[in-house]
Each structure stands twice: as structure tokens, then as C-alpha cells.
Design a protein around this nucleic acid. Structure first.
Lengths: 193, 193
DNA sequence: GCCATCATCTTTACGATGTCAAGATGTGTT
DNA sequence: AACACATCTTGACATCGTAAAGATGATGGC
């Protein structure tokens, strides 16, 4: 049954425990064997559900990205107009990773080419945070009655994403940002000009 | 003598071989033992020069950052005025990591908090690329006779850094950018408004 | 109800890795 | 020449990812 696994929920349990371990002691301490042990299962059991350690890690990344998306969506949905939505999404984006810099490094720092993002340059349709950014941006254009060419839109989107992601990166990497007080000053200026 | 180490140049040799291994097969294949073997030295020899694997890795990061700085400095010095210098530095920043995305992940992706960057929030004075960015930015302000408050300057610098670093990050992570043709369009617009 | 098939899990084993302790070896100093 | 010290070697250990072989339990056909 679901108590002792065996056709239970081991796969999900492995993912959840993986996230817990990262929360507690960072990605450096994430090992297949520890995850298995915490699930009270032999060290080779995960191989019934993931062909690799990488495959488990990618599943964990997808799960973390879901939580990330929940925050982003909430920020967008709670905003009154599209302009506020754009700013709030950016703030939420940075805020999420400032609160959990270990997640940032986990999601974007690995050597295996972040398979959870790109299916060969189709990130525009596949990577949920970017899809949400694009939607919000297009609503913003419509709201402001701005007319831009496809090229302009693409460049603007790239700049938006780069600014926000770069801010998150610098915050996580350099330890510059611990509090979040300067954001109100910087964000509308950064995202809307 | 310097031939067979022992008061030779093992320390530097370890760093150089480390970079070579990363170039050849990525950070995933960087191990103390392999580095030692390639230096024809026993697997514990590195411990005479580095207390940790981390300490070796940090030394390698510093070395890679030096090469990075050489390109940035060249870009700045070859520019006629400060405005061009600012744009060219940004272009050079992204270009460097587009050519070597593995370096980006190596420098900024690790879990150990990139000790080569921050000596406790003093990145402004310690991290060479940021120092160069700040210098170039200040020259740009002087050249254009722009008067900005300290706060404005700090925010603008952060935005500059975030934009450029974010662009590099996205390029490396998502595989969006392989060629570099869109940069001419985007850069002056991104950095100078 | 019985059995075969298949997914799931365990056991055992192997090589690679980071690290430590103890000792050997070379270098510089007095 | 003798000592102190940095450097390097050897051997050992725990941990890790992974593979192979077998046990165990569920599912579906008869």
C-alpha cells in the first residue's frame, strides 16, 4: 500500500525529501543515498523511478519551479493593472530568490544544462516563468496602447528578463541584498521606462 | 627544482591543470585526484597547498576571473570615449560567457558562496569586474557632465550590472544566444538610455 | 483460485572521490 | 653537519553513484 511503498508514492516522496535536504543543508548534501535513507528505502530503490541522479535532480528542479511559479502567478493576479503586474512580478521574482538563494544556485547553477528550461531554444513556450512574463508584458502593451514590432517586443522582453534575473543573480551571488528595502525605488524604474 | 616540484610551482600547476580539465570536460570532471595525477603527483599532494578542494576551486575561479578581467580591460581601453567604453565593456562581458558558458556556471553556479567575490558586502571594492564597471561609469558621467546623487549612482550601477550579468546568465542558461548578432541592436539601448 | 509477468525494492559489489594520519624526502638555516 | 620545516607519498576510511542479480509484491489472463 502507500504505507510501505511498493506501488506507493515513492517517486514523489523522493522529490519531497530532496527538497527538504536542500532546505536544511544545501545542494552539496543532496545524495541519492541520503534521499533513499530518509524515505526508509534501500539506496538503489530510486533507480526504479529515475535512471540517474540527474533525473531526480531535474524532477526536484521542476518541483521548485512550480513553487516559484505559484508566487509569480499570485503577484501578477493580485495586481490591479498590467503595469503594476509587470513590476510586481519582477519584485516577486527577485524576492523569491533573495529569500532562498540556495534555490537560485540549485536551479540555475548546475553544469547539466538545466534541462528543465530549454527544449532546444523553445524556452519561449516552455519555461513557465518566461511565458508568464511574456503574457504580462503583452497585456501591458495593450493596456498602454503601445504598438511595437515583433523585434522590438523580443528585445524588450529579453531586457526585462535579463534585468530581473540579473538582479536576482547578483543578490544571490554577491550577498548584496539581504533586506529588500531598495526594491521599491528600483523596480518601477528598472522595468518601466 | 622546478622540474620535479618540491619547492617548485606545484600550486600554480594545479590551478592551470584545473582550468584545462574544465575546458576539456567541464567542472563535473574536476577532481582533486585527477588534477594531482595530471601533475604527476600523489593524490594527497595538493593538501600541502590547499586545505580543501574548495580552496583549489576558489583559486581556479580567481584565475579565470583574471582572464575575464583582461578581456574587459582591453574592451574598455580600446574605446575612444567613456560612453563607447561602457557599451563595449557590456558587450565584452556577455561575449566572454557566451563563448564559454561553462565558465559562467563555474564562476557563479557553485554552492559555496563564491568567496572570490564577496568579502562581506565589500564587493564594490573587491570584485574587479565591478570596480572596472564603476570606474567606467563614473568617467561616463563626467564625460557627459551628468550630475547624480550617490544613491542614484548606486542604483544605476546596480541596474547596469544586473542587465549585463542577467543577459550573460540567460544566454548561458537557456542556450538562447549562440551567435552574437543581436548585441549591436540591444547593447547601447540596454546600457545607455 | 492459480500462475505468469512485470514493476518495485533489496542485497551485494565495484570504482571514484575527498580527506586524514603517518611517514618519507628534499630545502633552507644556523 | 644537524635541525626545522615545507613538501610529497603511502595507506586507509567513509561516502558516493551505479550496475547486476535476486527477492517481493501487485496485476491480469486463464
Amino acid at each position: 500500500m502507500s504505507d510501505n511503498y511498493h506501488h506507493g508514492n515513492l517517486r514523489q516522496a523522493l522529490i519531497d525529501v530532496g527538497i527538504k535536504i536542500i532546505n536544511e543543508s544545501g545542494e552539496a548534501n543532496l545524495s541519492l543515498r541520503k534521499v533513499a535513507a530518509r524515505c526508509k528505502v534501500s539506496h538503489a530503490a530510486p533507480y526504479a523511478h529515475f535512471k540517474d541522479k540527474d533525473e531526480l535532480v531535474e524532477a526536484i528542479k521542476a518541483s521548485v519551479t512550480e513553487r516559484f511559479m505559484e508566487e509569480l502567478s499570485a503577484a501578477v493576479n493580485n495586481s490591479l493593472d498590467a503595469e503594476r503586474a509587470l513590476v510586481d512580478m519582477g519584485r516577486s521574482y527577485v524576492s523569491f530568490f533573495v529569500r532562498r538563494p540556495d534555490y537560485f544556485r540549485f536551479l540555475f547553477g548546475n553544469q547539466n544544462l538545466t534541462a528543465h528550461i530549454r527544449s532546444d531554444k523553445q524556452y519561449e513556450n516552455d519555461y513557465p516563468p518566461f511565458v508568464l512574463l511574456k503574457e504580462t508584458y503583452l497585456k501591458y502593451l495593450k493596456e498602454k496602447q503601445l504598438d511595437k514590432s515583433e523585434d522590438e517586443q523580443e528585445i524588450e522582453l529579453l531586457k526585462l528578463w535579463a534585468s530581473v534575473h540579473g538582479l536576482a543573480a547578483i543578490a544571490c551571488i554577491s550577498g548584496v541584498v539581504t533586506s529588500f528595502d531598495w526594491n521599491d525605488k528600483i523596480f518601477s524604474d528598472l522595468l518601466i521606462r
